[in-house]
Amino acid sequence: MTTTTPSRGLARARRGLAPGGGGKPGADGGLNRRSRLASQATRTFFWLLLPSVFLLILIHGYPLVYAGVQATHDGSLIDTGNFVGLDNFANVLGAPAFWKAAQFTLVFTIVGVFGSWLVGMGLALLLRTRIPAGGFFKVLLLLPWVVPIVVSSTAWNWLVATPDSPIPAMSRALGLGTPLFLANPTLAAVMVCAFKVWVSFPFMMMMTSSALSSVDGTVYEAASMDGASRWQQFTGITLPLIARSTYISWILMTIFCVNDFPTIYLLTGGGPVDATTSLVVLAYRRVFQDFQTGPGVAIAFLMTITLVVISAVLYRQIRKSSVE
């Protein structure tokens, strides 16, 4: 008969062995092994991810820290300069040029986001219907987005830049005068906003088309049987069902518009008389033309903070939208 002392029994119990058994592991032993395996897997994933995380920090973190250093100094592109604290931010916020650029950036962003969304959504809804050569038209409508921005801006300059350009010449032939689209401040702002809608609506069209393709057609059939009109189906079914995709496209297009440098600079250069100078163009001028690195980077930081706030607000709307 085998006897087991209390101390030996406790030791065997800690190892998950029965008091009189032959050493087979119990449930606790299996849990311990699984815990050790999970810990080993966690350590393995950590060491595998560490090089990528370090590379991301090096690529994005270092420039961000260095930009923060420049924003708090009065240096140039070749010299950091003296530490001035938040004076650059105070000077930027107190400059009329900043608020004028911020006003145009706001108008440019609103028109760019909602103008391209309305055009893109309208075309996406149109392409859902049975129209001849629908695939060909889809490819054709992508051209403004696919063509390089340099080519598009050159084409628009050719259309409106001088009094002898096609559109001013056509207006003159119709007896409407000769509008100077890129010399008049108001017309230049209108042209820049229209150009942004032109190059951006294909993106919105693709986002909306992708969202509409996931909507079940039987929902519309049921709504039609209940007597819902086309407008009621659009406002009560289509818009709620594509709400998340819509908010995501708004976030992306807002970022694109606020950070859009080539669309404005290639078409008008920010003129005339700074009528089309956005914040990103103003930051570029401060850094690369006036060699005032501190104020230029401060403008960029203010833009980043604004974009983070807008993105956070729209992201909350994405979470609130109940789409099943």
Rank of each mutant, 00 (worst) to 15 (best):
P179D: 03
W156G: 09
A38E: 14
A223Q: 02
D274M: 12
W145G: 04
L118F: 04
K24Y: 14
I131C: 10
G20N: 09
L118S: 11
T3L: 14
A71V: 05
A183I: 11
L48G: 01
K24V: 15
P132A: 03
S39I: 14
L142H: 11
L126A: 13
G68A: 07
Q70A: 12
V160P: 07
R230V: 15
L17E: 14
P185E: 06
V139D: 13
T276F: 10
A189T: 04
S224Y: 15
L252Q: 03
A243D: 01
L125M: 14
W156M: 07
A169I: 11
T218A: 13
V308Q: 01
I78H: 12
G122W: 10
V146W: 03
T44F: 02
P202C: 10
T44H: 11
G227S: 11
G177D: 05
Y62A: 00
Q40T: 15
F261R: 10
R230H: 15
V107F: 13
I305S: 04
P148S: 07
G236M: 09
S229C: 15
S39T: 14
P51R: 00
G85V: 07
P272R: 01
W47L: 10
Y284F: 11
R316F: 02
V65G: 06
V323Q: 14
D290F: 12
G175Q: 03
C257I: 04
G217L: 13
V287M: 10
A71E: 04
N88A: 10
F89H: 08
G296Y: 05
P272M: 04
V151E: 06
G270C: 06
T178E: 06
L10K: 13
G29M: 01
T276K: 10
G75E: 08
W156K: 04
P51A: 11
I248N: 09
T4P: 07
S165Q: 01
V192K: 00
W47S: 04
R43L: 11
Q317C: 09
I167L: 10
V146N: 07
G270E: 03
M170F: 07
D28Y: 08
Q292F: 08
V147L: 00
R14S: 14
P6H: 01
S249V: 08
L307M: 13
F261N: 05
F301W: 09
